[in-house]
């Protein structure tokens, strides 16, 4: 009988000890908030374009954390989708958008057609359009995320989405991928 009691006491002590240990660990390594949302948001391109069907990148990140599909972010492209897949531990899926929409673009306002209606200014999620009522508007290219949201509201259709061109700064050393054009024939000197 005493053996049984000893066993029970021992087990009880053990349980107490481990319980305390677990409790301590839970307290010590406690994670603030839901890091998955933050991580997912960090992966998203922050264009705030709403093409995913959510009103911004943060809401979409929250939705992803709650099991939304990861392939709804055209601006992020396949790379973002793959990173999200890795983060969420799901299989990569083809993007919902076509490849054409994945080219980075910026908005451009044809300024002589702009009537200064400020609609695009209100539509821009990142305040990248400069202008005021009745005055010509223009896009601050550096701030433009290419979200497309300003195109629809424009009453005179004067906003174009222009693909970002290759410059010396963003050239990526794809040596033999350059379409080599013999400019010397075209130039005049």
């Amino acid at each position: 009988m005493s053996q049984v009691i000893i066993a029970i006491i021992l087990l009880g002590l053990l349980a107490l000890a481990f319980g305390a240990l677990l409790g301590y660990a839970a307290e010590k390594f406690k994670v603030e908030g839901d890091p998955i949302i933050d991580q997912a948001e960090a992966l998203l391109p922050q264009t705030q374009c709403g093409q995913c069907g959510y009103p911004g990148c943060r809401p979409y990140a929250e939705a992803i954390a709650n099991g939304e599909k990861i392939n709804k972010c055209p601006p992020g492209g396949t790379a973002t989708m793959e990173k999200l897949a890795e983060l969420m531990g799901v299989d990569p899926e083809p993007l919902t958008a076509s490849a054409e929409t994945q080219v980075k673009k910026v908005a451009f306002i044809r300024e002589d057609e702009c009537i200064g209606c400020t609609k695009c200014i209100q539509a821009c999620p990142v305040d990248a359009i400069l202008g005021t009522g009745k005055q010509m508007h223009t896009v601050i290219t550096d701030y433009c995320t290419g979200c497309d949201l300003c195109v629809e509201p424009c009453p005179v259709d004067c906003i174009d989405m222009i693909p970002v061109g290759e410059t010396l700064h963003n050239w990526s050393w794809q040596l033999n991928a350059i379409p080599v054009v013999n400019i010397s024939e075209e130039s005049k000197c």
């Binding site: 050393w173 040596l175 033999n176 350059i178 080599v180 013999n182």
Partner: peptide, 8 residues
């Protein structure tokens, strides 16, 4: 240019 561009 027909030659293959090579990196240094």
């Amino acid at each position: 240019m027909a030659f293959k561009l090579a990196s240094s």
